[in-house]
Design a protein around this nucleic acid. Structure first.
Length: 724
DNA sequence: CGCAAGTACCTTTTT
DNA sequence: GGTACTTGCG
């Protein structure tokens, strides 16, 4: 059978073990995705299982899309009936259909973490506590922790004063969510589990439908997710989970490695398959990675091996500052490209924290080398984008109080903080939603009645907003999504407002980009397309937007890099305090996770690995001198380029590296520019560069021209010449 | 109420 | 170095 022909014995075993629970422990690069897709293809083509009876859960939408694409090739069609998606997307779909059984209205909106924080602050105030005294983020984390253990406010047992606060806030927070007809990310999962617990007949329907269940990245599931799969697999027990404990890097999201351990307890009949042959990396890289991960105490040893070429030694490089570090990376990328062995798109630069991307970006721009940044300030978190989404959400669900409070005075309508808290109070005292209160005020204004506490100016403002929204809501039934989008942006006054503000053009561009996203949903009927669009934009992740077809270097965090692979990998910031991160120093478990993170990074590489560190690095304004990462010390010198020089002084390795393997001086002719440079433009004449700012794959250069004044130019278009 | 200026706070990672 | 929130004034 051709579905099996391309597989090694272990992979084949994993594919053919279709009845009963299966635990696949898959090392990096062991063809995990191939096993999952071939398994599904095998089920459909060989075993004749209907695609609609198969569910495959992935970690990101990108992974889901990839799996779908691969299956489309293997199966040719009939892919549409498969259930493939992230936990959150699949749960949202279930809740839209079945939610009413547990009092979840199908028009619910999904709150992201920012919305969550904002509602938590209001919850704090509502129970009479000061948001300044109890960090909303800490409470958020506690609430997420509770929800990932399936604890409702009533079941939550406080063991400290702080936890008592958490419980009170959590309780009110859930009330406010319900009133807003909203669910947060954690609710999506928890509510489905509750739905199934409380409605056995609903559960039974789903259990009967899904004959086969598959979970990817199982090491990163939390307790709710595990419980959910356990429920769904309750009837047929055909649950196949794939994971690698060494790549577990989401414990802070309450991923629980015990899920892997418990799996064999809950499913004693489970077949365990080990995938230990690596198809991705050279022998050198695999060995380097193995040494790094072996230093962890809390792990089962694995025997990873590969038939691949030995490859070249790992480069360990020290630079003086993070600017020099970035410069080295850019230079090295260009070297590799000019030697003809690699393309820019083969190179990935990985780092521990997002803040580290800035120095890298600056260097890429300075040298005119194109790159792509995975996220950064994430698109869907930008203020203007969230504002428009808030308008649209409010149209779908006027009870969404977080969105209402967000945009009721944006652009300014003369509804200030005071009027707002009065509005909330008034609504609460009459036990109605804010939006309903607005409607009443608008009606009363027409009737000249005055029951509410607002003066005539504020009343007019509030009524105006109510009418605006009512108009949108009425039109939303008939307008197609893009037309609705345009209507909202124009008649709310938002367009004018944003264009008149700082960075107006840039922000407007973002809104237009959001509009293109909306266009993709335009074919559906009006109300459906709005709902689908809103769900789509809330459940995206940053890697989802990563486009491998563009031939540029990729800047990416180590977390985001999980599941990806690149011929050349640079890991920068190999310093104690960065990787491992300083926050892990006093917690051995967290330290082990940092090590796994490093391992994930190294094992992304197919051909070459660079581990780069800076002697001195500025962080948050001040600068620090960091020691080399302790993880470097776990790599035997013989695996490091130039490392044999250190033989016999292993213990001194850290000190030694201060003076060895210094980054060579960049050999690039500078095609880029920096502020202060004199330039010449064909049309505008001579000028001086004021600033350079990264814009996607390009750079925006501001130049003061002697004759033509100040101009903003795109580096790729402007054809500026350097002049002395 | 709106705006400008000042201040405190932070930054790990994300569905 | 940046933002998000507070304060004070018109």
């Amino acid at each position: 059978m051709d579905v099996l022909s391309e597989l090694n014995p272990a992979q084949r075993e994993a594919v053919e073990a279709i009845s009963g629970p299966v635990l696949i422990l898959a090392g990096p690069g062991s063809g995990k995705t191939r096993v999952i897709t071939h398994r599904i293809a095998y089920l459909v083509k060989v075993c004749g299982v209907s695609p609609r009876r198969i569910m495959a859960v992935t970690f990101t939408n990108k992974a889901a899309r990839e799996m779908e694409a691969r299956l489309r090739r293997l199966l040719r069609g009939s892919v549409d009936d498969l259930t493939i998606g992230t936990f959150h997307a699949i749960c949202a779909r279930i809740l839209r259909r079945e939610g009413k059984a547990i009092g979840v209205n199908s028009g619910f909106v999904i709150y992201d973490s920012e919305d969550q924080i904002s509602l938590l602050k209001r919850s704090l105030q509502a129970v009479g506590l000061d948001p300044k005294q109890y960090a909303p983020r800490a409470i958020q984390s506690a609430v997420t922790a509770a929800k990932s253990r399936l604890l409702t406010p009533a079941e939550y047992l406080p063991r400290s004063y702080f936890e008592e606060v958490v419980q009170r806030v959590y309780e009110r927070y859930q009330q406010l969510l319900t009133e807003s007809n909203a669910l947060d990310f954690d609710d999506l999962l928890m509510k489905v589990v509750h739905l199934f617990q409380q409605n056995p007949q609903v559960l039974s329907r789903y259990q009967s439908r899904y004959l086969h269940l598959q979970v990817d990245e199982f090491q990163d599931t939390n307790l709710v997710q595990y419980e959910l799969m356990k429920q769904l697999a309750g009837k047929y027990r055909n649950l196949c989970v794939v994971g690698d404990p060494d790549q577990s890097i989401y414990s802070w999201r309450f991923a629980d490695l015990r899920n892997i351990l418990n799996f064999e307890k809950d499913y004693p009949e489970a077949k365990v398959v080990l995938l230990e042959q690596n198809y991705r990396s050279t022998k050198m890289i695999l060995e380097t990675a193995s040494y790094i991960i072996s230093a962890n105490q809390q792990r089962k040893p694995k025997d990873l091996w590969t038939d691949n070429e030995p490859g070249v030694l790992t480069e360990v490089v020290e630079t003086y500052t993070e600017q020099e570090e970035a410069q080295f990376v850019v230079n090295e990328v260009e070297q590799l490209v000019s030697q003809g062995e690699f393309k820019r798109g083969d190179c990935a630069i990985m780092y521990r924290t997002n803040a580290q991307s800035r120095a890298l970006e600056e260097a890429f721009i300075r040298y005119g080398v194109p790159y792509k940044l995975v996220a950064g300030t994430r698109f869907y978190e930008r203020r203007e984008v969230k504002d428009i989404i808030a308008y649209l959400r409010l149209i779908q669900n006027p009870y969404d109080s977080v969105s209402l409070l967000r945009i009721i005075n944006i652009p300014q309508r003369g509804i200030g903080q005071r009027s707002l808290s009065e509005l909330s109070q008034w609504a609460r005292s009459r036990d109605i939603a804010e939006y309903r209160a607005l409607q009443l005020i608008a009606e009363q204004k027409e009737n000249e009645a005055t029951e509410h506490p607002f003066n005539s100016r504020t009343t007019r403002a509030l009524a105006g907003f109510a009418h605006l929204m009512a108009g949108f809501i009425a039109r939303s039934r008939e307008l197609n999504l893009v037309d609705l989008f345009d209507l909202v942006v124009e008649s709310s006054g938002y367009k004018e407002y944003i264009l008149g503000g700082i960075d107006g053009e840039e922000r407007w561009e973002n809104i237009l980009e959001l509009r293109t996203v909306a266009r993709e949903y335009g074919d559906l009927p009006p109300l459906e397309s709005l709902a689908a669009f809103l769900e789509g934009v809330t459940l995206v992740s940053d890697v989802d937007g990563l486009d491998e077809s563009i031939d540029t270097a990729t800047l990416i965090t180590l977390h985001q890099a999980k599941g990806l692979e690149f011929p050349v990998v640079f890991i920068v910031g190999m310093e104690d305090g960065i990787l491992p991160h300083i926050r892990s120093f006093d917690d051995p478990e967290q330290m082990e996770e940092e090590r796994r993170l490093c391992y994930v990074g190294v094992t992304r590489a197919k051909q070459r690995v660079y581990l780069v560190r800076a002697f001195r690095r500025s962080l948050m304004g001040s600068s620090a001198i960091n020691r080399p990462s302790r993880f470097l010390l776990d790599i035997p010198p013989r695996l490091i380029s130039g490392g044999e020089l250190w033989r016999g002084e292993d213990s001194q390795l850290a000190t030694a590296m201060y003076s060895w393997n210094k980054a060579p001086t960049p050999k690039l002719a500078i095609p880029g520019l920096s502020a202060g440079d004199h330039v010449r433009h064909a049309q505008f004449g001579d000028g001086v560069v004021v600033s350079i700012k990264p814009v996607k794959d390009d750079a925006e250069v501001v130049v003061v021209f002697d004759g033509a004044g100040i101009k903003k130019l795109l580096l790729s278009f402007a054809r500026l010449e350097k002049a002395e």
